[in-house]
Structure formats: C-alpha cells, structure tokens
Simulated scan of single mutants.
Amino acid sequence: MDREAREVYLVVVQVKDMLGLNGGYSATTTVTISLMDVNDNGPTFQHNLYTFAISESAPAGTTVGRIMADDSDVGLNAKMNYSLEDLEESSTFTIQTDPDTQEGIVILDQPLDFESKRRYVIAVEAINENIDTRFLSAYEFQDRTTLKITVTNVDEPPIFSETSYSWKVLESAQIGTQVGTIYARDTDTTNNPIRYSISKSSDTRQIFRIDPSNGTVYVANRLDRETAAWYNLTVNAREISEHILVINMHQPLTQNF
C-alpha cells in the first residue's frame, strides 16, 4: 500500500446467518481504513536552479526569497532543515525553515556591495529531520539545488576623501589665492564626474569661491581677521551623469585664519 497514492479505503462488510444459505438474513456496514504515514519519501527540489535579485542597499535581515523542497510525507515525516553548503559564498546569507510551510527562507546576513561582488552562486541542501532507514537509505532523505543571487546596483552618493578639512590662510592673502583643495569620488562603477559648489546658505559664499571641476577653494574677497577669524563653509559634491544630476552630498569645510 502507498499512502501517498491513496490514503483512505472504504470496505463494505456483509454478514449473513444460516451460513449464508438462501432465506437467511444479512446486514452490511462500511469500514473506513486510513493508512498511517511512514517516512518513505525524501525532500525533492522541483528546480535545479533558483534565482533571486536583491538591491545592494538592502539592510541585513532582508528576506531574499523562499525556496521549497517537496516531501510527499506528512507531519513529522515531512519536516526538514535547509542549509547553505558553500561556506565562502554563503557567509553573506543564511537560510531558515518556515515551521508552518516548510519553505526555506533565504535571508541577507551581511551588507552587499555591487562594486565588489555582483553575483553569488550557492548550493542549498534540504534534509529530513527524521530519518528512517527501514524504508530509504540515509542518502535518499536529502536533496540539493543551486541558488543564484544577483546584486542590483544603487547609485550611491559621492564620498569625500576626508570627513572635514581645516586650512589656514593669511589675512593679507590676495583675491585669487588658493586656500586648499577638497576631493570626492564616485564609488559606482560608472565613475561619473563630480562637480563642487559652496552651499548658498553659507554666509561666506562671497568670501570664497570653488572651482566646480577640481574642488580647489580660492579667496574671492578681502579678508580681515579682526572682523572674522574663521569661516565655516559647506561644500556640495554633486555626481553628474551624462543626462541627469544624480545626487547631492554635503561636506562641512572649516577655514581658520
């Protein structure tokens, strides 16, 4: 008998008196026979490859996707555990078993970086919690598949080479004197050019100017230490694509005189 093919049988039983001779009385009843499950099936993946995509900006703990190995058994015999087999590749991800659906939930465990690694190929194994070698060999209670995870790019803001800049200049410096240079870079693979500007909200915008192409700051007006001994500038680094301004980023810049 195979419970997976037919779980319930209805048997009609008849009883007769007079040893079943003609003229005797008879009665019938129906007996329901339900087969109890044994662990004679292992998990089986329906696909050799599962593919998912996840943004590089996704935080740790994000669910990447769900996979499922089918097991024709029921109850405890259908319970299974999933594991990621390629330790070097899988250190970025973990997998958990959903106790209700027996699905494998693939979870992001570490931050992603599109510029460093764009694709992960990981072997996944599903194995029954309860193994009964009376019906199958131990090897038949497990199955493997391949998981391919593609990292999608996010246009990231420029990054300054320093968190802050501090320069000194003489109050007698002439207009056009170079004070210093800041630098920001595009961390994306497109490596778009960067344009610099001094924030319009800065009160010192008329005192200094910045070369939009290379980030060099110049004296733009007369300086007087007795009037202002230091200046605090906010510099914007803007990433420029071929067709559109992508993003802005601000960097405080302190000037000491």
Rank of each mutant, 00 (worst) to 15 (best):
V151M: 06
R185Q: 07
R222K: 14
S213T: 14
D71R: 12
D17T: 03
M80E: 07
T145G: 10
I107A: 03
D70H: 15
S201L: 08
G75T: 14
T254V: 08
P59Y: 01
F52Y: 02
T63P: 02
T177S: 14
S34Q: 15
I244P: 09
D143G: 05
S137T: 11
E242M: 13
N39D: 05
Y25S: 15
H47A: 09
M1P: 14
T216V: 05
D188Q: 02
K200G: 03
M68R: 10
I247C: 11
T177A: 13
T181F: 03
V8S: 10
T51P: 03
E7K: 14
A229G: 11
Q110D: 02
G75H: 10
S137A: 08
E85K: 04
V219I: 13
K117S: 01
D143M: 07
T152M: 07
H250S: 15
S213D: 13
D71F: 13
Y165G: 02
L136M: 04
R134Y: 05
H47N: 00
Q102Y: 12
E171R: 03
G65P: 05
Q102W: 12
H47P: 09
G23Q: 04
V11T: 10
W167H: 14
M18S: 14
R3G: 13
T44K: 06
I194P: 08
L108M: 03
I244G: 09
K148Q: 12
T145Q: 10
N41Q: 12
V179S: 10
S26G: 01
D71I: 07
I247A: 12
T97A: 10
E162I: 09
Q174T: 13
D186T: 03
S172C: 01
G215P: 03
W167G: 11
R209N: 09
R66N: 08
T234H: 11
M249A: 13
R66W: 01
Y50K: 00
R222S: 12
N77T: 08
D40Q: 02
T254C: 07
E115Q: 07
P158E: 11
I105L: 00
D203G: 05
S172Q: 01
A173M: 07
I247R: 14
V124E: 01
T145R: 07
N128L: 01
E156I: 08
I54G: 00
L76N: 15
T44M: 06
Y120A: 00
I149P: 11
L223V: 04
N232E: 13
T189M: 06
I207C: 03
V31Q: 02
P43M: 06
H250I: 14
I33G: 00
D37A: 02
S241L: 10
N256C: 05
N128R: 06
P212N: 10
D40C: 04
T181G: 08
G215R: 01
I182F: 04
Q142H: 05
D224S: 12
T101K: 05
A173T: 07
S72N: 15
V219S: 04
A126W: 08
F257S: 02
